Amino acid sequence: MPMLIQNSSLTAEMVGKGFTVDLNKPLVFQVGHLGESYQEWVHTPILTEESPRFFESDFLEIFTRTVWWVVPLIWVPVALYFIRMSYTMGLTLALVVMLSVLGAFVWTFLEYCFHRFLFHIDTKSYWGNTFHYLIHGCHHKHPMDGLRLVIPPVEAAILALMFWYLYGILFTLSTRPVMFGGGLIGYVIYDMVHYYVHHGQPTKQSLKSLKKYHLNHHFRIQNKGFGITTALWDRVFGTLPKTKAADKRG
């Protein structure tokens, strides 16, 4: 289990290759200097809800913080627009509903792949560390930072555009919009579930289990448990973490 740091008033936290990270200064262009020590540093969580500063520039800083409700506010109407587009192009209502569900299911696979193969890349170069910190490392370092948990709209729009063009290759003219819209619904569910398992207090057993499953990824076995909305793909690809009971038996 990684060491936890709860005192956010520290001014300097760790030295890597002679470099000290100053937590009271913008972090993004510091972390690259940690070199090979970056992975240990970024996986040593600070358990406060404070939102550290990323950039000196106030303009750039704006784009790094997002309140959770912005995600459904922006992307649900966009998703419904594309789903309706396929209906107006002649697909039956039943087929539109089925393909919307399929699109959301495809997203669960994409979420797993992103988390496992991109968000958890092993970096040690200056720009590699900097890139990793921006896309996911910051979340592992400050897992309770509620303003840097959901994907910022600008970043999400870039990814959405990429998938829109990819879906143009994979699907027909009429099925492309509904698969894309269903995927957006899946993405919204992903970001809302992710926010909830960090900041919510679930009462239903299913949500309690999901919260435990994800926090286990943060604080116990960080190279397993890559699913957010479902553990299905971890089961399929053998990255489902063992329970503590199983660890003791082993």
Results as ranks from 00 to 15, higher is better:
residue 1 M to P: 14
residue 2 P to T: 15
residue 3 M to W: 13
residue 6 Q to A: 11
residue 6 Q to D: 08
residue 7 N to A: 11
residue 9 S to I: 10
residue 11 T to Y: 12
residue 11 T to R: 13
residue 13 E to S: 14
residue 15 V to F: 04
residue 15 V to E: 13
residue 16 G to T: 10
residue 18 G to T: 15
residue 20 T to S: 14
residue 24 N to H: 12
residue 24 N to Y: 04
residue 28 V to S: 10
residue 33 H to T: 08
residue 36 E to P: 10
residue 38 Y to A: 00
residue 39 Q to A: 12
residue 42 V to L: 04
residue 43 H to Y: 09
residue 44 T to H: 02
residue 44 T to D: 03
residue 45 P to L: 00
residue 46 I to P: 09
residue 47 L to D: 12
residue 47 L to C: 14
residue 48 T to P: 11
residue 48 T to G: 08
residue 48 T to R: 03
residue 49 E to C: 07
residue 49 E to A: 12
residue 50 E to G: 11
residue 50 E to K: 11
residue 51 S to W: 05
residue 56 E to R: 11
residue 57 S to E: 08
residue 57 S to I: 14
residue 59 F to E: 13
residue 60 L to T: 15
residue 60 L to Q: 07
residue 62 I to L: 09
residue 65 R to K: 14
residue 66 T to H: 06
residue 66 T to V: 11
residue 70 V to K: 09
residue 72 P to D: 07
residue 74 I to F: 06
residue 75 W to P: 01
residue 75 W to C: 01
residue 76 V to K: 01
residue 77 P to F: 04
residue 78 V to K: 02
residue 78 V to A: 06
residue 78 V to N: 06
residue 85 M to G: 08
residue 90 G to T: 14
residue 90 G to P: 02
residue 90 G to N: 09
residue 97 V to C: 04
residue 97 V to M: 04
residue 103 G to D: 05
residue 103 G to V: 05
residue 103 G to E: 04
residue 103 G to M: 00
residue 103 G to A: 03
residue 104 A to K: 00
residue 107 W to N: 05
residue 111 E to W: 02
residue 114 F to W: 08
residue 114 F to K: 06
residue 116 R to Q: 10
residue 117 F to E: 15
residue 119 F to Y: 08
residue 121 I to K: 13
residue 121 I to D: 13
residue 122 D to E: 15
residue 122 D to T: 14
residue 124 K to E: 13
residue 128 G to H: 03
residue 128 G to I: 12
residue 130 T to L: 03
residue 130 T to E: 02
residue 132 H to M: 09
residue 133 Y to Q: 09
residue 133 Y to R: 03
residue 134 L to R: 08
residue 135 I to P: 03
residue 135 I to M: 05
residue 135 I to H: 04
residue 137 G to F: 06
residue 137 G to A: 09
residue 140 H to W: 01
residue 141 K to M: 07
residue 142 H to W: 13
residue 143 P to S: 07
residue 143 P to Q: 02
residue 144 M to H: 05
residue 150 V to D: 04
residue 151 I to W: 02
residue 152 P to V: 15
residue 152 P to C: 11
residue 153 P to D: 07
residue 153 P to H: 04
residue 155 E to A: 13
residue 159 L to V: 15
residue 160 A to N: 13
residue 160 A to F: 05
residue 161 L to F: 09
residue 161 L to Y: 08
residue 161 L to V: 15
residue 162 M to N: 08
residue 164 W to D: 05
residue 165 Y to K: 14
residue 166 L to P: 08
residue 168 G to F: 04
residue 169 I to M: 10
residue 169 I to Q: 12
residue 170 L to R: 10
residue 173 L to P: 06
residue 174 S to H: 09
residue 175 T to C: 07
residue 183 G to C: 07
residue 185 I to W: 02
residue 185 I to V: 15
residue 188 V to K: 00
residue 188 V to D: 04
residue 194 H to Y: 04
residue 202 P to K: 05
residue 206 S to E: 15
residue 206 S to D: 10
residue 208 K to Q: 14
residue 208 K to T: 10
residue 210 L to H: 01
residue 211 K to I: 13
residue 213 Y to K: 03
residue 217 H to K: 00
residue 218 H to N: 09
residue 221 I to P: 00
residue 222 Q to K: 02
residue 227 G to T: 06
residue 235 R to V: 07
residue 238 G to C: 09
residue 238 G to N: 05
residue 238 G to S: 08
residue 240 L to D: 00
residue 241 P to V: 00
residue 242 K to M: 02
residue 247 D to F: 00
residue 248 K to G: 00
residue 248 K to M: 00
residue 249 R to F: 00
residue 249 R to M: 01
